[in-house]
Amino acid sequence: MTQVAGVATIPLANSALDDLPVTLADVVAARERITPFIHRTPLLRCEALSAMTRTRLGLKAENFQKTGSFKARGALNALLRLSPEQRERGIVTLSAGNHGQGLAWAAAKFGVRCAVFMPETATPSKVAAIRGYGAEAHFAPVMERVFAAMEAHREAHGMHFVHPFGDPAIIAGQGTVGLEILEDGPETEAISVCVGGGGLLAGIAVAVKSQRPEIRIVGAEPEGAPTVSRGLAAGRPITLESITTVADGLSAPFGAETTHAIIARLVDDVVLLTDDEIMAALRLILERAKVLVEPAGAAGVAALLNGAAGLAPGTAAVATLSGGNIDTGRLRALL
């Protein structure tokens, strides 16, 4: 397994996409804003996984990012865009864990009060990290009821809501992953992106399609949490009645207008994966690439392993390893 050396490029504007909720200029500005605080994560190569997926595969290792996932990028960008009045009020969000960690980390760096609402089933290590950064951790019985609990708290305490994936500043921050993929892998022909609420998928789509519209972008979503794919089928964001997936990091209970508009316009396909397919990918990433990811972080590779991404043999592909926050006890049970 090797790391691909970075090559700087200057993004070019695409005026045809300037009507989207987030533009390439927003993503470039986000990178300038957050670069002093985050890691530039590696683009790794693994010959074994390339052979298994019949691609020339790169792995964008966001599990090595601050807080263990790409979420730190968008969270920090959103926090840095807040007004002094909003910072003073404090911020509140809902999360399966990774966005909460990213926002708690960002808030701690700038002395902003932060409250995170999660389901009671949230991964203990994610909850511990959120508290470790000094944020408040609150819970609802299941993910589908977290928003209502958070909204009641927000109204009672006058806090500012930072949307976990629909905030344009969040999307722009996540889009910096796409800029790095193009710079470190200029030969890239396709990108398979893990998708829950769609912030990462939308951000990468803006960053990539604005410069290289021929690159195929595919979202990889668990069939037990099909928020984005059902929203695309309905022509609008939808709310799920139930969620059942091993990939808790991809368990968004509802969609957002911003991500929906970008994904519907720019993303080539969103495919559904079974839990078994996601876990098979997780095991192979660990065994062959020697990299540990959480189930959500394996979805992009899973869509390549089962052929759902629809790539021709030999395609220069990149899969996002979106996060690596998994309890050792749960890992033992899953493996």
Rank of each mutant, 00 (worst) to 15 (best):
K60T: 06
T53H: 04
P11A: 02
L43T: 12
S15F: 08
T67G: 10
L12N: 10
A13D: 13
D19E: 01
A29T: 13
A78D: 07
A72V: 07
A51E: 14
L49V: 10
L17T: 05
G74W: 06
T53P: 01
A8C: 08
L57F: 08
A72G: 04
A75I: 09
V27W: 02
R54N: 12
A30V: 09
K66N: 15
E32W: 04
V28L: 07
D26T: 09
R40P: 10
R33N: 14
C46D: 15
I10L: 09
V28A: 11
E47T: 15
A25P: 06
K71D: 05
D26N: 15
F64R: 14
E32R: 13
L43E: 12
A25S: 14
N77I: 05
T9S: 01
D18I: 00
I38K: 03
V7K: 13
L17W: 03
N77Y: 01
F70D: 01
E47N: 14
A48P: 13
R81V: 02
D19A: 10
H39E: 04
I34P: 02
T41P: 00
L76V: 05
E62V: 11
L43H: 13
A75Y: 05
G58H: 01
L79K: 04
T53R: 03
T53I: 00
N77E: 04
A16W: 04
T23V: 08
A16V: 05
K71V: 05
L80Q: 11
T35F: 10
T55C: 13
P42Q: 00
L44R: 15
N63M: 14
R40V: 11
C46P: 07
V27N: 00
T41H: 03
L76I: 08
V22C: 06
P42M: 00
L80I: 09
A13P: 01
I38Q: 07
A8F: 10
T67W: 08
A75H: 04
R40D: 12
A75P: 12
E47M: 12
T41L: 00
A61S: 13
G68Q: 05
G74D: 12
M52V: 07
N14S: 02
R56Q: 02
A25H: 09
R45A: 13
K66R: 15
F70N: 04
F37T: 15
R81F: 02
G68E: 02
T35M: 11
T53Q: 08
C46L: 13
Q65N: 09
T35S: 13
A78Y: 04
K60E: 05
R45L: 13
T67K: 08
L12Q: 14
S50I: 10
A78R: 10
R54H: 14
K60M: 08
C46S: 15
N63K: 07
T55M: 01
